[in-house]
């Protein structure tokens, strides 16, 4: 790798690492240290192909998503179980303020599997359509739909206060897709 390519890489990291790190933090359920590791690993991979990558950000993001789902799944599971307890719910779900609900949701997100959390981050943080999520993760649209549905249901099970909210569009129709939900072998 020549000096010019290194400069381009440094410039890319300087401009985009904050945005990429935000995504990585969400993928790891709020574990900043794990997120930096995740991003560092993805950037090292990108470096190995730096001169052949046309769109580095898209490339790095794709590695982030896939890496989080497949190879690091077992490693993160241990972390997921060790996160802080959910905040105490307010007295009644009707009275729970939006800020408390967001906090509850963040706590509940840490207790999803890496796969479930990644699909939610792609759908609701990155605002990607199901077809794009499927393409990025290398699975069917049906799998994205069913994983989204199950993930939201699981959030409700973890934080019953969310049950008082209206049904999500993704939940209005039960999935008829029976393909395996495992995204990668």
């Amino acid at each position: 790798m020549d000096a010019e390519a290194q400069d381009r890489f440094r410039e890319f990291v300087e401009n985009r690492s904050s945005s990429l790190l935000k995504t990585a933090v969400l993928l790891t359920g709020g574990d900043r240290h794990a997120a930096e590791d995740l991003l560092q690993n993805a950037l090292v991979k990108a470096l190995n192909r730096w001169q052949r990558i046309d769109e580095p950000e898209a490339y790095v993001r794709q590695i982030l998503y896939r890496q989080q789902i497949s190879r690091w799944r077992l490693k993160w599971r241990r972390r997921e179980l060790s996160v802080a307890e959910l905040p105490e719910a307010a007295a009644g779900s009707d009275g729970v303020a939006a800020a408390d609900l967001r906090l509850l949701t963040r706590g509940a997100l840490t207790r999803l599997t890496a796969r479930q959390r990644t699909v939610l981050v792609l759908r609701y943080f990155e605002d990607l359509p199901e077809a794009d999520v499927a393409r990025i993760l290398g699975c069917s649209v049906g799998t994205v739909r069913s994983t989204t549905h199950r993930s939201l249901a699981r959030l409700r099970a973890i934080a019953p206060e969310l049950g008082a909210l209206g049904p999500a569009a993704g939940e209005s129709q039960p999935s008829r897709d029976f393909s395996p939900v495992e995204v990668r072998p």
């Binding site: 904050s18 967001r102 906090l103 939610l120 909210l165 999500a168 569009a169």
Partner: peptide, 20 residues
């Protein structure tokens, strides 16, 4: 709905992150 609160929760958490 649940989707809205998930979206808001993720954005709030992302916004809190200091740069790399």
């Amino acid at each position: 709905n649940v989707e809205d609160i998930v979206r808001d929760a993720l954005r709030e958490q992302a916004a809190e992150q200091a740069s790399a």
